[in-house]
């Protein structure tokens, strides 16, 4: 449980290599003894950024496609002590050109939706027992309206986004807060080589917005903040106008 200074005692990051999640750790209050659990694929040899070197970091090797094992590892994280914050940060961008390739198609949907949905179930149920905690889903504006180049990715993001919105309706009974972070284009290792979209931003800006959203227990946060106004407009644009922008 957060102490009286609002410091997180234990954080679990599903997708421990995520640039956004690691930047966020730098922006939230932690005490000296706080545990940060990084769960991800082949994470044992992953080098964390130098600014996190003073933290008490534990690496958990998880293949999120191996659902049963992943659920077991998540449960173990809770078994060793209350978890104050779970960040769901893992995702696959897929391939813009061959997003309909069956194996890429299946991989994106399985990882970004099916696996995350089941992890959410596990995390939420364990947190509900604690009666305290926060869950942050790193979603995407790609889930607001399908775009030609990444609609499979967008589908997976919007589905789990929808699921978290449903879970948010239960929170008043369980004292858990769920926050959906919808970043636009962010310069990270995941987007290296991809031409930036309008309103592109950097991971530190996104991290600051996410930290503020956690502090305020916001339901949805956009990064950059201007997307809060832009996305609803884009969502309702007639298709023939949207198509002109979606190139």
């Amino acid at each position: 449980m957060l102490n009286s200074l609002g410091e997180y005692q234990k954080i679990l990051i599903l997708g421990g290599k995520s640039d956004l999640a690691l930047s966020l750790i730098n922006e939230i209050p932690l005490s000296e003894d706080s545990e940060v659990l990084l769960a991800g694929n082949n994470i044992s040899n992953f080098k964390t950024p130098p600014e996190l070197s003073k933290l008490n970091i534990e690496r958990i090797d998880i293949n999120f496609r191996d659902i049963e094992k992943a659920k077991f590892l998540v449960a173990s994280a809770f078994d060793t002590g209350d978890v104050d914050l779970v960040i769901i940060a893992y995702a696959i961008l897929g391939d813009e050109i061959s997003q309909l390739d069956p194996s890429i198609y299946e991989n994106v949907l399985h990882t970004n939706f099916y696996s995350q949905a089941l992890m959410l179930n596990q995390v939420y149920n364990r947190m509900a027992l604690q009666h305290h905690g926060q869950i942050l889903l790193i979603s995407s504006v790609a889930g607001v309206r399908p775009r030609k180049r990444n609609f499979v990715y967008g589908t997976s993001k919007s589905s789990v986004d929808f699921l978290v919105q449903g879970l948010q309706k239960l929170t008043h009974d369980s004292n858990i807060s769920l926050t959906i972070l919808r970043p636009g284009f962010v310069h990270t290792k995941m987007t290296t080589g991809i031409p930036p979209a309008p309103f592109a931003t950097d991971k530190v800006t996104v991290a600051k917005i996410a930290a503020r959203a956690l502090r305020n227990k916001s339901r949805i946060a956009y990064a950059p903040r201007i997307l809060f106004f832009v996305m609803p407009i884009l969502k309702i644009l007639p298709e023939r106008i949207f198509r002109l922008l979606d190139r």
Binding site: M1, L2, N3, S4, H131, H132, D173, S174, N175
Partner: peptide, 17 residues
């Protein structure tokens, strides 16, 4: 029924029965 309580300092709140 769960209720929110705190200590005298009102700085930490806990959802408990």
């Amino acid at each position: 029924m769960f209720q929110m309580i705190s200590g005298w300092g009102n700085s930490i709140h806990s959802h408990t029965v």
